[in-house]
Simulated scan of single mutants.
Amino acid sequence: MTTADLFESMASPLPPVEAIGPASYLLRGFALSHADGLIGALHDIAAAAPFRRMRTPGGATMSVALTNCGMLGWVSDRHGYRYERIDPRTGRAWPPLPDAFSQLAREAAVQAGFDAFAPDACLINRYLPGTKMSLHQDRDERDFSAPIVSVSLGIPAVFQFGGMARGDKALRVPVFHGDVVVWGGVDRLRFHGVLPLKTARHATLGEQRINLTFRKAG
């Protein structure tokens, strides 16, 4: 099935909650009622900590631009992948986690069966048409007991949700503005990624997709 076929198959009404693993859930449209507040806060975050394309430890430049908010921010350079309290570009602490962000993350986690989620980091990725995220695991956090909460804003994408090994077959899950994916527990270290984005335009965000990834990193 092609990417176009995947999106065409979503023409029928979507279920509000869809299990995509034993402890993984797709919450269709869960963030829509929060979207205006999220986008407004996002502008303030990007003004204080601008989006940038970081380098991998191997020296390649990432196609996806990123920034962070919260007590800890995810960074990558020749020294490796890690969390830092200080933005290496500005020399200042990352912007604090907005109330709109933390409220949505907590509510989504509860909806997926993960109570008492208290994120201290939000990685914000900006995808343009043609950009992608290769399959990877989120394993730079100190404690894997907390879930991952991933929020999609802007143009559609195809989220890949694989297994515990990079070579495992991955589900292809179309995600749209306002969709939230939550995974944890036995699924916490599953490989995941995003296929190259098709050209599209969102009424508010234009030709881009913003992904908010909430974690308990410290």
Rank of each mutant, 00 (worst) to 15 (best):
M1A: 14
T3E: 08
F7P: 08
E8N: 11
P13L: 05
V17R: 13
E18C: 15
E18V: 15
I20F: 13
A23Y: 03
L27I: 02
F30E: 03
A31C: 00
D36E: 11
L38R: 14
L38C: 04
I39N: 10
A41L: 02
L42K: 12
I45A: 04
A47T: 14
A49Y: 07
P50Q: 13
F51D: 02
F51R: 01
R52E: 12
R55A: 10
P57V: 05
G58I: 03
V64P: 08
L66K: 12
T67V: 00
G70S: 08
L72K: 13
W74R: 04
G80I: 00
G80S: 01
G80K: 11
Y81I: 00
R82Y: 08
E84S: 15
I86M: 12
L97I: 00
L97G: 11
D99E: 15
S102E: 10
Q103P: 02
L104M: 09
L104K: 09
R106T: 12
E107L: 12
V110D: 14
A121R: 10
L123S: 03
L128V: 11
L128F: 04
P129M: 00
G130Q: 00
T131A: 00
S134V: 11
S134F: 10
L135H: 01
H136M: 08
D140Y: 03
D140C: 05
E141V: 05
F144R: 05
I148G: 07
S150E: 03
S150Y: 06
V158G: 02
F161K: 06
G162F: 01
G163M: 10
K169W: 04
V173G: 12
H177M: 06
V180T: 05
V180G: 06
R188H: 07
H192K: 05
G193K: 10
V194D: 02
L195A: 03
P196H: 01
P196T: 11
K198A: 14
H202C: 07
A203C: 07
T204C: 07
E207L: 02
Q208Y: 10
R209P: 00
N211R: 07
R215Q: 13
A217R: 09
